[in-house]
C-alpha cells in the first residue's frame, strides 16, 4: 500500500526536517511553530493541514459507501474534515502530552472528523428507525431469532428488563444504539447532546441490565 500521508511538501519550518529522528524534538518543534506567529505559524499550520487532509482522505476512502450518494467529492469532504480537525487540534495543543508522536496525535483528529462526517452523511435523509410505538413489537420479536434455549431465555429476560427497569431515556438510547445500530454521533446530534453523555447513559443502562440478569440467574 502506498504511504497515505507521505507526499507532503516540506517548507523551511518543517519540524521533521529540523529534528530528524527525535520524536520529542519533532513534537516540540511542531508545538513551538504552531504557537509562534507570522510566517512560521502559517507554514506549520499549512503543513499540518496537508497531513490532516491525507488522513481524512484515507478515512473517507474506507467509508466511501457511507457518503458517496451525497454527490460530494472526496477532496471536498477531506478538506472539510481536515479544516474541522485542524481547528479542534489547535484549540487543544495544551492537551498533547508527548506520549505519542505528534503526528499520531494529530491524525486521530482527522479520523474522528472524517468518520463523523461520513456517518452523518449516511444518515442525513433518514429518520431514527425506532419510535416508542415500535418498541413492544421489537421486544417481542427479537427473542424469536434462532438461538439456543439458554441464549433465548436470557434475551427474553433482558428484553423484559429493558421494558421494566430502564428509564424512558435509557430505553430510547439503548434501543437506537444497539437494536437499530444508529451511530452514536448521529444520535447525539439528533438528541442535541454529546457522544460522551450518550455513552454514559448506555453504560448505566447496560449495568442495570447486567445486574438484573445476574440477580435472576442467582435465584
Amino acid at each position: 500500500m502506498s504511504n497515505p500521508v507521505g507526499s507532503v511538501k516540506r517548507g523551511p519550518h518543517d519540524p521533521t526536517r529540523a529534528h530528524p529522528g527525535s520524536r520529542q524534538a519533532e513534537a516540540e518543534a511542531w508545538l513551538q511553530s504552531l504557537r509562534s506567529g507570522g510566517r512560521e505559524r502559517e507554514d506549520a499550520a499549512a503543513r499540518l493541514d496537508g497531513l490532516l487532509v491525507k488522513a481524512a482522505r484515507f478515512e473517507l476512502l474506507r467509508r466511501r459507501a457511507q457518503w458517496n450518494r451525497s454527490g460530494e467529492s472526496l477532496d471536498d469532504l477531506a478538506v472539510q474534515s481536515a479544516d474541522s480537525a485542524l481547528s479542534a487540534l489547535l484549540s487543544k495543543l495544551d492537551h498533547y502530552r508527548f506520549e505519542s508522536r505528534f503526528t499520531t496525535w494529530a491524525y486521530k483528529f482527522a479520523i474522528l472528523e472524517a468518520a463523523q462526517l461520513a456517518r452523518r452523511r449516511a444518515w442525513q435523509e433518514r429518520e431514527l428507525p425506532i419510535g416508542p410505538e415500535e418498541w413492544d413489537r421489537l421486544a417481542e420479536s427479537t427473542p424469536e431469532l434462532a438461538a439456543g434455549v439458554a441464549v433465548r431465555d436470557q434475551l427474553r429476560r433482558v428484553m423484559r428488563a429493558i421494558q421494566t427497569q430502564l428509564s424512558a431515556h435509557q430505553r430510547e438510547v439503548l434501543t437506537e444504539l444497539v437494536l437499530a445500530e444508529v451511530p452514536i454521533d448521529v444520535l447525539a446530534e439528533r438528541l442535541n447532546t454529546t457522544r460522551g453523555a450518550l455513552y454514559k447513559t448506555l453504560h448505566d443502562a447496560r449495568r442495570k441490565l447486567r445486574d438484573v440478569v445476574g440477580s435472576e440467574a442467582d435465584d
Binding site: 500500500m1 502506498s2 500521508v5 507521505g6 521533521t16 484515507f58 478515512e59 474506507r62 491524525y107
Partner: peptide, 15 residues
C-alpha cells in the same frame, strides 16, 4: 482506522 493509517504509513516511511 488510526491503526491502519499508521501501519500503512510505517510500511512506507516518510521520505
Amino acid at each position: 482506522s488510526l491503526r491502519e493509517l499508521l501501519s500503512a504509513a510505517e510500511s512506507t516511511p516518510l521520505p
